[in-house]
Simulated scan of single mutants.
Amino acid sequence: MTLTTTQSILDQARDAGTATGAFNVIHLETAEALVRAAEDTGLAVILQLSENCLRYHGALEPLARATLAMAEASSARVAVHLDHAEDADLALRAIDLGFSSVMYDGAKLDFADNVATTKRVVAAGDAAGVLVEAELGEIGGKDGAHAPGVRTDPAEAAQFVAETGVGALAVAVGSSHAMAERTAVLDLDLIARLRDAVPVPLVLHGSSGVPDDTIVAGIDAGLVKINVSTHLNAFFTRAVRAHLDDHPAVVDSRKYIDAGRSAVVEEAARLLQLFASPRRVG
């Protein structure tokens, strides 16, 4: 199957009153696991490469090209997305490389500067048929730069979407990045008001810290794209640690990495099914 557009995945989920999983790629093994989860469940998945991940690997192209190749070779509907690019030029390069969508994160900028730079990325995305996600209202916890109590204002969100033309909007509604415990409380009323205020799909970042039932309630309220990274990383790491504890003499890294990959397949599949289950009423 060819690479799937993020737009089509989000449109289908929103029409069904459900959401889709957008899971972060850390290395090739996580990309393989996420594609396998989509194939096992028959559900679409969005593979995300963050600016931080690409900085770790030292360049955009090698990991991006490999991830795109996996998506194109899969029998499942798989999109590839650039996550949290604070560098607008990186977002433009990802568009040129053939990503399904990109997120330009100008949340640290003031409103006017965020709008101006986001519009530049959207213009390039529109020309290439690539959806652009943006962020308004800082999501707590990222690099210690954001306050967890920040919330996205619906009126400001409507203005931002109208002025920029973005295809999806990441909103601050109570979640926080890199949470290891699932204790976050979402503002469901705010999610519903944002859903009514803007015409594009809403994105939840920092979903690793949100309990299952709260995520489902958030989807019912209007969330369409659910980003998960830390939660799946923890499954990978626990499985690797357990394998090493059980096999202290192992030296072939494929053995314990495979244990981590298998754990991610199972949990990613469970999350995809969870996100696809809500049915919004009214």
Rank of each mutant, 00 (worst) to 15 (best):
S262T: 13
A107D: 02
N227F: 12
L28T: 11
L186N: 01
L49E: 05
M1G: 15
V115T: 06
M179Q: 15
A94V: 04
V25T: 08
G222Q: 08
L202K: 01
L188W: 00
L3Q: 10
A44N: 10
D15Y: 00
A69K: 13
L274A: 00
M179D: 00
D220G: 10
H247F: 08
N24V: 15
H84Y: 00
K225L: 04
A162N: 02
D11S: 01
D87C: 07
V130K: 06
A276P: 07
A217H: 03
L274Q: 03
P211Q: 07
H57Y: 02
L271P: 03
A170R: 02
A127Q: 06
V161Y: 00
A184D: 07
G137F: 02
K225D: 02
A13K: 03
S207E: 03
D246R: 14
N24C: 13
N114D: 06
T164D: 15
N52D: 14
S50I: 00
T41Y: 03
E181K: 11
V161H: 02
G218D: 13
S207D: 06
K225F: 09
I257T: 13
E29N: 10
H205D: 02
D212R: 11
A123G: 04
L54A: 01
I219W: 01
D15H: 07
K119D: 01
R182T: 08
A168C: 13
K255P: 07
V228Y: 04
E135C: 01
A180I: 12
R254K: 12
V265A: 06
T230G: 04
L47M: 06
D196I: 08
T2N: 14
V185W: 09
G206C: 06
A64G: 05
G149H: 09
D113W: 09
K142I: 15
P278A: 11
T152A: 08
L92T: 12
M179A: 14
S74L: 07
A239Q: 13
